Every structure is written in C-alpha cells, then in structure tokens.
Amino acid sequence: MIEVSDVSMKFNLYKEKVNSIKEYFIKVLQGKMSYEEFWAIKEVSFTVNKGEIFGIIGYNGAGKSTLLKLVSGIMKPTVGSVKINGSIAPLIELGAGFDPELSARENIYLNGAVLGYSKQYMDKKFNEIIAFSELESFVDIAVKNYSSGMYARLGFSIATSIQPDILIVDEILSVGDVKFQEKSLNRIKQMIDQGTTVVLVTHNIDQVKSMCNRVMWLQNGCIRRIGSPEEVVNEFLKEG
C-alpha cells in the first residue's frame, strides 16, 4: 500500500535576509545568497500494509510532518522513492487550499475541483459536508471571517467526505471544540472500519496505543525504532 525506500529530504536554509523577491533574485544572480544544508529526513525506509493503522511519534522537529508531506506527494524527496498504491487523502494543514475571499460554498467546489471531483459529485456531497462542519448559518459568508475552529472544521469535513484507500492524519484530531473532536475521531474510526489504511502523527500517546497496529519513532529525521505500540511508546517515554 505504502512503500518508502531510502528517503532523504534536504532543505537549503539561507543565511541572508531579503525584503522582497526582487532582492532575492538579485542576490542569487550576484552569488551573494549563502545557505546551510539541512536534512530533515535521513535514509528513512518503511512499508505500511493495506488496512493497517501506522503511527509516527517523535518530538517537535523530528521530521514527522515533512515525512507525511513526502508520503502524501505534496513534496518530492531529495533522495529515494515513495510508492503509493491507491487513492490518498491527506489531512495536513486543514484549509490550506482555501481562498479566504470566497464563501464556504465556493471553497467546497473549489477544493473538489482541485481534488479532481466533478461538480455533480460535489453537489451530492455538499449538504453532508455543511452538516458535519456545523456551518449551516455561515455557508455563504467569506471564510476570512471564520474563526480558526470554523476554518478547520470545514477543512476536515471536505477532506473526509470521500472514502480514500489511504488517510494521512497530522495532528488534526484536535480541531474544533471537544464535541467536534469526538465527532472527528468517530468519523476516522468509521473510515478505518471500512478498510482505509491510516498513517497517523500525533502527540497523544493514548491514541497511538489504542488505535495503531505498529508505531515508528522518528528522531532527528532518522528512524529510531519500529514495532508494537506498547514497546515503542514505552521506550520513547522512558528516554524522554
């Protein structure tokens, strides 16, 4: 289902401060832009099988979100390969593709088009998306006027309105209030029950233990350990 082979990801961290794109390109042409290489992911390999719930844990800066973006196809690795078999729905940076000047109604169809779904398909899903997000009274208001919770609820509702083969989840089980968090978790559990493969990044250790079949501990961009949730989590907590 997912095969990550010897993947590394490099970023160039520029030392020079620039105030505009024009200044950036001028300095690049003049050879005045110096940078340091930073490897966020280093020689990572793992597989996730069909129907598995695979957890990824690690402290902030370990490379977890970068790895999820590589698996989701949002970024391409500097070295190595990522092979995906099936459709994928990344729940990463919810609402990142929204146009703040457009309403919830318009953003639903815009996001649907970006994901490759027809207007007819989104017509069928529209009422379900609005009802789940609990935004019936705000459907025709520009999303720039939404609170961060409303923004995330709409993004989650759109992203989970389909039944993908693979679901990529990055700390989104904390969206909205406690009631909506519970509803979000139940929706993900329903998708799991229907056979969706899940890759989950979260700092909630109890969720990792209760939901995952296997867990990978990522440290400084490298795999520290892969194994059962109980073993990996206990070692992670002991060292922390």
Results as ranks from 00 to 15, higher is better:
Ser65Cys: 14
Glu23Gly: 03
Lys209Leu: 15
Trp39Arg: 01
Phe46Thr: 02
Pro164Phe: 07
Arg187Asp: 08
Ser45Thr: 15
Leu68Ile: 07
Arg224Glu: 13
Glu136Asn: 12
Ser148Asp: 07
Asp165Trp: 04
Glu134Met: 10
Ile53Leu: 10
Ile168Arg: 05
Met9Leu: 13
Gln190Tyr: 04
Val71Pro: 05
Lys27Leu: 12
Leu135Asp: 01
Glu230Asn: 09
Ile56Gly: 06
Ser5Leu: 07
Ile172Arg: 06
Leu185Arg: 13
Ile92Met: 08
Thr160Gln: 05
Thr78Glu: 11
Leu102Pro: 02
Arg225Thr: 09
Glu93Ile: 11
Pro164Trp: 02
Asp123Ala: 08
Asn107Val: 04
Gln194Trp: 00
Gln120Met: 02
Lys179Ser: 14
Val178Glu: 12
Val139Thr: 13
Pro77Asp: 07
Ile88Glu: 08
Arg225His: 08
Glu136Val: 11
Asp206Ile: 11
Asp206Ser: 14
Phe98Gly: 00
Phe54Cys: 11
Glu43Trp: 04
Gly51Pro: 04
Val215Glu: 03
Val143Leu: 05
Ala131Met: 08
Tyr146Gly: 05
Lys15Asp: 11
Met191Ile: 03
Ser103Phe: 00
Val28Met: 14
Ser20Lys: 00
Ile205Thr: 09
Ile223Pro: 05
Gly112Leu: 05
Ser8His: 10
Gly195Asn: 03
Lys76Trp: 07
Ser210Gln: 12
Lys17Gly: 01
Ala40Met: 11
Ser34Met: 10
Phe156Trp: 06
Tyr59Ala: 14
Lys15His: 13
Ser8Met: 10
Ser147Tyr: 09
Gly95Tyr: 03
Ile192Val: 15
Ser133Thr: 00
Lys32Ile: 03
Phe156Glu: 03
Glu171Lys: 10
Ala152Glu: 00
Asp6Thr: 08
Val215Gly: 05
Gly55Gln: 09
Leu135Ala: 03
Gly240Thr: 06
Asn145His: 15
Lys69Ala: 02
Val44Tyr: 06
Val114Gly: 04
Lys17Ile: 00
Val169Ile: 15
Asn213Met: 00
Lys42Cys: 00
Val201Gly: 07
Leu70Val: 07
Leu94His: 06
Thr66Asn: 10
Met211Gln: 10
Asn49Arg: 15
Ile56Lys: 09
Ile84Cys: 09
Phe25Trp: 00
Gly86Gln: 11
Lys144Trp: 02
Tyr151Trp: 15
Arg224Trp: 06
Leu167Lys: 03
Val4Gly: 03
Tyr59Arg: 14
Leu13Val: 14
Ile88Thr: 13
Thr202Arg: 02
Gln194Ile: 01
Met33Glu: 02
Tyr59Val: 13
Val82Phe: 11
Phe138Trp: 10
Gly221Tyr: 05
Ile158Ala: 01
Ile108Glu: 05
Asn49Asp: 13
Gly86Ser: 12
Gly116Pro: 02
Ala159Asn: 03
